[in-house]
Design a protein around this nucleic acid. Structure first.
Length: 540
RNA sequence: GGCUGGGUAGCUCAGGUGGUUAGAGCACAGGAUUCAUAACCCUGAGGUCGCGGGUUCGACUCCCGCCCCAGCUACCA
């Protein structure tokens, strides 16, 4: 099977319903959405999953405080999730909630298997609990026997819980990660996990008894399964694991939007799981590699193919936090500047490799420089000239009579024809910034080409009609290519270019990104600026 | 403390299995131009590639030491 025939399954984490989503959640989701769109545009079978995580003590408490039930509380927040994904045009295929009954059943199945494999045992869970932090500490976390944050002596907490034999997976995980260099990306994150594995793993408690908002342990119902051991199972429960022959979310209104026909007799889990890719923030990499993979191995399931862990945003050089009041609300930014502007800033300046800094000044600068002055102006000036000089009809392709100009034209042809391979290479490595840079090299070259070939001068000289046609044809080919290349990254802009070009972007990506796709005589629509320049004054 | 990254132009970063004048974008200055959203294009200025040693004909690139920054250090979803 070629790469483009292999099904790929892309997931975001299920976001916890304790609060509204901020730019960090949007970042994870936009990365995932862009990857999903890209492969989908290439004709590759894609399943893109997101959802909500609704169990745990925090939710129980928050719901009680709000005078409602946990599920009712979750419903309200989940509604906001949907609003945001709508605003950012996130095209997920499935939205799963950990309170879905089929999910709870799958979690219980996992635990039955862990029990059968003798990977669970009962033991006393001892911890030092700081009431102010609501956090359990171990001896070594403490400073002079006191909570490092509040400088108070923590309580001794002791209860009987089920423990998972995480320690027995140390070597297996190490071998797996060493044998699969790309299973955790980027590389520094992989090193972190390997480093921690070298220190060895401790068994970990995976059930709780102080509250009941969670999935019950089937054979000992006063225990509730620890949220992390519960939540990540969604990645397989939404595929109907272990042996479902359909997507369980099909039974819910508005929760499943996939349009895939599975091959006859193939179950969703078997179809999608081999190339599962989890997109996560670096804070939950540990859970998504070590704990999740051990859980899977224990239950007899192969780990997913890859985990991509991105970094965090800072805001104007400071940590983003509620108490500082500097939380970036992606929905608000999208409403003010457009969702493509948000997507572009995330993809271009975001924390894909390390951490990044969300600065309003660079947001505005990039918007003006790249989107309005670069891309938008190129499209606008090209289409306007076509209307002026050829009544909006694409001329026949022809060569320049001038050798130097013909050389520049050949460069553009080469760049357009190479673009799909370059994009594929970058996207494969999760380098979405690199992919956009490839596109913008073409934008800059094309703008330079306008100045070099100067169609506005050629138009004044009837004897240069062939050169004028050569120039305008080339520019229209570039604009056409840009519409396709941008489609996964900036869907609105791509659609805007397409409607001005009067085309529908219906072709598949690798093929569509080739020179010569515009028919001579094709009549374009009405040109209009894609991105209005921002007038805001910014410092620095 | 341990582990992992990183310190390259004003800013954000790329690069280099050691070898002619170290790259891009943005910002800045000058010029050119008028198709276009006072946009675009060209040119320029700007860096002792964190510091100190070492290896080498030659290091920003390799080795050692040091300084600084960031992240990770698990049951907090």
């Amino acid at each position: 099977m070629t790469e483009l025939e292999r099904p790929i399954y892309i997931t975001t984490p299920l976001y916890y319903v304790n609060d509204e989503l901020h730019i960090g959640h949007a970042t994870t989701t936009v990365y995932a959405d862009t990857l999903a769109r890209f492969w989908r545009d290439c004709g590759r079978p894609v399943l893109f999953l997101t959802g909500s995580d609704e169990h745990g003590q925090k939710i129980h408490k928050a719901a009680t405080a709000a005078g409602t039930t946990p599920r009712g509380f979750a419903d309200r927040i989940v509604g906001k999730f949907h609003e945001l994904w709508e605003k950012l045009d996130v095209q997920y295929d499935i939205f799963i909630r950990t309170t879905d009954p089929f999910h709870e059943a799958a979690v219980q199945q996992v635990f039955e298997r862990l029990k059968a494999a003798d990977l669970l045992y009962k033991s006393n869970y001892k911890a030092l609990y700081c009431v102010d932090c609501e956090t359990n500490y171990t001896e070594k976390d403490l400073v002079d026997g006191k909570c490092p944050v509040h400088k108070t002596v923590p309580q001794n907490v002791e209860e009987e819980n089920y423990f998972f034999k995480l320690s027995s997976f140390t070597d297996k995980l190490k071998q797996h990660i060493e044998a699969n260099p790309d299973c955790i990306v980027p590389e520094p994150r992989r090193n972190e996990i390997l480093g921690k594995l070298r220190e060895g793993l401790n068994d970990t408690s995976v059930t709780r008894v102080q509250f009941d908002w969670g999935v019950q342990l089937p054979w000992d119902t006063k225990h509730v399964i620890w949220v992390w051991a519960d939540a990540l199972v969604n990645y397989i429960s939404s595929l109907g694991w272990p042996d479902g022959d359909h997507y369980p979310t099909d039974e819910f209104e508005n929760r499943a939007r996939h349009k895939h026909e599975l091959p006859e007799g193939v179950k969703p889990f078997d179809y999608w799981w081999p190339e599962a890719v989890h997109i996560v923030g670096k804070d939950i990499l540990w859970h998504h590699s070590v704990i999740w993979w051990s859980e899977l191995l224990g239950a007899g399931v192969k780990p997913p193919k890859q985990v991509f862990a991105h970094g965090w945003w800072q805001v104007e050089g400071e940590k983003m936090s509620k108490t500082l009041g500097n939380v970036i609300r992606p929905g608000d930014v999208a409403e003010k500047y457009g969702r493509d502007a948000v997507r572009y800033h995330i993809l271009r300046e975001g924390p894909a490799r390390g951490d990044a800094d969300w600065r309003h000044a660079s947001f505005v600068t990039r918007y003006n420089a790249d989107l309005a002055n670069g891309l938008g102006n190129l499209v606008n000036r090209s289409l306007n000239m076509l209307v002026k000089y050829f009544d909006g009809k694409v001329p026949e392709e022809t060569t320049f009579t001038d050798a130097k100009l013909e050389g520049l034209r050949q460069d553009l042809i080469g760049h357009v024809n190479d673009l799909s391979d370059r994009l594929l290479g970058d996207v494969r490595r999760f380098d979405l910034d690199g992919a956009l840079e490839q596109i913008w090299v073409l934008v800059r070259d094309a703008n330079a080409f306008v100045n070099e070939s100067a169609p506005f001068k050629l138009a004044k000289d009837e004897s240069r009609r062939q050169d004028l046609a050569a120039s305008m044809h080339a520019l229209l080919e570039v604009v056409h290519a840009l519409a396709y290349a941008l489609k996964p990254f900036l869907p609105d802009a791509a659609q805007g270019i397409a409607s001005q070009l009067n085309i529908d972007l219906g072709e598949r990506l690798p093929a569509a990104l080739n020179w010569g796709r515009l028919l001579p005589g094709h009549q374009i629509g009405t040109p209009a600026p894609l991105f209005q320049r921002l007038d805001e004054k910014v410092d620095g």
